[in-house]
Design a protein around this nucleic acid. Structure first.
Lengths: 227, 227, 227, 227
DNA sequence: GATGAATGAGAGTTCATTCAT
DNA sequence: CATGAATGAACTCTCATTCAT
C-alpha cells in the first residue's frame, strides 16, 4: 500500500511538472520558458525537475510526447470504427481542431521546433502514431473505394493537418474559440476532392467542368424548347 | 557618381547584414541566433549591426519584412492578370511552394513567432499584402462565378496556405526539393472543391455531383438522338 | 541552532557583498565600479550578487543606505543627551568628521550622485534621519536659548556639513588622517556665530556678543564687591 | 585677415565644443556624457572633437579648466580692491554662490571627480588660482588685524566654500534660484567668528562661554538675594 | 529524495576611438 | 581639416544546471 502511495506521489509530482512545463512553454516559447517559473508553477524546487529530466530539452520532449500521446488516444476514441472513411475523417478533424484551438500556442511550438536540434526522438514516434490514425483511415477508404486511390496519401495528410492548423491559428488570433463551420467547410471540400472519379479531370484548364456542363445544358434545353 | 557609390556601399552592407541574419535566423531560430554570428557572416563588426537596427528584434523585423515583400513581388509577377482565378491560384501556389520549400526553416520562424511580442507591425502589413494576393484572386473568381461564393474566403485561404506549408515541410524533411505534383494534386482538389455547385452535395457519398450531371446529360442526348 | 547558522551565513554573505561594493564604489566611482570586481572581492560569483540585489543601482542603494544608517546610529550614540546643544554639536561634528575622513571617497559619491536618477528613496530617508540629528540639536538649542533662533536652520546645517565635508576632503587629499583641530576651530566659530545676541551684531568686527556680556558682568561684580 | 578669420573660426568651434561638453557633462555626469551627444550639440562631427582633444578625459579637463578660469576672472572683477577683507569676502561669496547655483550640476562634478584618475593637472592650477583669491583676502585681513590670525586659513577656506557649495545644493534641490539671505547669514557668522579676539577663547575647553556666564550670573543673583 | 542558493558562461548592447574618404 | 561609419572591447545581467545540506 505504501508503495502505491509512493508511486502515486511520484506520478503526481511528475504530472505537476509536465502540466506546469506545458503551460509555460505555451506561454513563453521554448527559449522563453524558465525552469524557475516551471518549478514554481509545479510547486517543486528547481532542482527537483532535474531529478526527473536530465535537462530542459528532455523536459520539452516529455511534454510534447505526452501531448501527442493524449491526442492520439482521444482521437482514437472519437472515431467510430464502423463509420465510413469520410465520417471518420470528419470526426478526426473535429477532434483535432478542438484540441489545437484550445492549445494553439503549444501546438505551434511543436510544429516549429528547431530542426537541427532533432529531439531525441522521444516524441517523434508519438507524432508518428498520431499521424497513422489519418493514414489508416485514408488507406481503408481507398481500399473500399470511398477515396480516390490515385491521390498521394502524404499530400492529403498535409492538406488535412495544414488546413486545420492554419484554421486554428486564425481562430485563435481572432479570439474565437472553436468554430464547427471550419469542419463542415473542410469536409465539404474534401468530400468533393477525394471522391473517386473515373472521368478525365475537368476540362483543359481554362474553364472548369461544372461551367462547361452548365453551358451544354443550357444549349440543350434551349434546343428542346425550340423543337 | 561618388554619391551613388556611397549609397551602393551602404546598401550592400545592409543587404549583407540582412542576408546573414536571414540565414542565421533560419538555422538557429530567433533566440538561438547570435548577433556575433550574424555579424561574422555578414563580414561586419557586431557594433555595425546596431548602426542599422536598434536591436535584435528590429533586425528580425527587417529580415521578415523583406522576405514577405520580396515574396509578394515575385508572386505578383508570376500571376497572369488575364488568367482565370483557378489558373492564378495555381500560379500562386506554385510560386509559393517553390519559395518556401527553398527556405522552409525561415518561413516556419515567421509563422510561429511568439504571439505576445507582436512585432511593431513593420512587417505585419507586408504579410497582409501577401495574403491579399490570394484574397483578391478568390474574390474575383467568386464574382465571375468561377468559385463558389458561399465558401468563407478565410477558410479557403487557411486551407491553401496551410496545405502548402505542410507540404513544404514534408518535402524539406525528406530532403526532396520542390515537387510539382504537390501543386497538381492540390489544384485538382481545389478545382473540384470550390466549383460552383447549386445541386445538393454529391448524393450519399457514393457518387459525386459531376457524375450525376454527366449521367443526366447522357440520357438527354440519347433522347435527342432518338427523336 | 541550524537556522541561526543559516541566517548567519546569509547575512555574512550579504555583508561581504556590501563591504566589497562599498570599497569598489569608493575606489572607482559609481560607473567605474564593475560588478565582476565587487563579486571577486566579496568572494562570490557575479550571479550571486543578483540574488541579493536586482541590479547595480539597487546594490548602490543598499550600500549607501547602510552607510547612512550606521552613521546615524554611531552619531546618536556619541551624543550625550544631557549635554548642551553646542556640546552635542561638537560631538556630532567630531563623529561626523572622523567617519567621513575615514571614508571620504565614498561620501563624495553619495553627495554627488546624479540628481536625475533619484534613487528609489531607499536611502533618502536614511539621510534624512541623519540630518535630523543635527536639526533636532539645533532646534533644542534654540528653544533653550543657546542658539540664536533667528538663524535659518537649513543654512546652519549646510554650513555645518559643508565645512566638515570640505575639511575632510582637504585632510584626505593631503594624506592626513583625522585632525581634531578642525573641530575645535569649527566649534569656536560656531559658538561665536550662533550665540544668542540681542545687541547689534558685534560692532565693527572688534568685539563679539559674549565679550560684551562678559564686560557687563565684570562691571556688575565689581559694583557688588564695592557695596 | 584671412588668418584671423581662420583663427576665429577655429576658436568658435573650440568654444562650441566646450560649451556643448560643459552642458552635457552637467546633465549626464562624466561617465554618462556621450561624445556623440556633445558633438551633435556642438554642431561638429564626433571625429572633430578628437582633433582638439586627445580623448574624453582631456576634454573634461579643458571644460573644467575653462570654468575655473572664468570663475576666477569674474570673481576678481567683483572684488573691490580697496574694500575691507570682510567686504571682499562677502563679494566673493556672493559671486561664488551666484555662479555655482546657476551651474550646480557642473560644479558638483568638478568637486567629486574621481581622485585616482588625477587629471593631467591642466585645471588643478586653475582651481588653485581661484582658491588663492580667498587666501589672499584672508591673509590681507589677518595682516590688517581684521581677521584673527590664529585661525588656520585652510580651515576657513573649507568652511567658506563648503558652506557655499552645500547651500547651493540645497537651493538647487529645492528649485530655488539664488537667494541672498544665504550670503548675509554666512557673513554674519563669519564676521563674528573671525573677529580678532584678544581674550583667551572661552574657558578651558570643558565648559563653554555661555555656561561660565550662566554660573557667574547665578553667583551674582544669590549674592544679591543675600544682601 | 528534495531543496534552492550558488554558479559562471555567454548573451545583447554601448560607446570611446579610429581612419578612409 | 572635417567627417561619421565602423570598430570591438567591455559591460551588465540572465538562467540552465549543480550540489551541499
Amino acid at each position: 500500500m505504501k508503495q502505491s502511495t509512493q508511486r502515486q506521489k511520484v506520478e503526481a509530482k511528475e504530472t505537476a511538472i509536465l502540466d506546469a512545463a506545458h503551460s509555460v512553454f505555451a506561454e513563453s516559447g521554448v527559449d522563453g520558458a524558465k525552469i524557475s517559473v516551471i518549478a514554481k508553477r509545479a510547486g517543486v524546487a528547481e532542482g527537483t525537475i532535474y531529478l526527473y529530466y536530465r535537462n530542459k530539452a528532455e523536459l520539452l520532449d516529455a511534454v510534447v510526447g505526452r501531448f501527442w500521446r493524449d491526442l492520439t488516444e482521444g482521437a482514437s476514441a472519437s472515431i467510430a470504427p464502423s463509420a465510413s472513411a469520410l465520417e471518420q475523417l470528419e470526426a478526426l478533424a473535429r477532434y483535432h481542431l478542438m484540441c489545437i484551438v484550445d492549445d494553439y500556442a503549444f501546438v505551434s511550438l511543436t510544429t516549429a521546433v528547431r530542426h537541427g536540434k532533432s529531439f531525441d526522438s522521444h516524441y517523434i514516434n508519438q507524432i508518428r502514431g498520431y499521424v497513422r490514425l489519418f493514414d489508416d483511415i485514408v488507406h481503408r477508404g481507398m481500399d473500399r473505394g470511398e477515396i480516390d486511390a490515385t491521390l498521394p496519401v502524404w499530400q492529403l495528410r498535409d492538406m488535412f493537418y495544414g488546413s486545420l492548423e492554419y484554421s486554428a491559428r486564425t481562430l485563435t488570433l481572432h479570439g474565437n474559440a472553436y468554430n464547427d463551420s471550419v469542419i463542415t467547410t473542410l469536409m465539404r471540400l474534401i468530400k468533393r476532392g477525394v471522391a473517386v472519379n473515373d472521368h478525365p479531370p475537368a476540362g483543359s484548364g481554362s474553364r472548369d467542368a461544372l461551367q462547361q456542363i452548365s453551358d451544354r445544358l443550357e444549349r440543350i434545353e434551349s434546343a428542346l424548347k425550340r423543337s
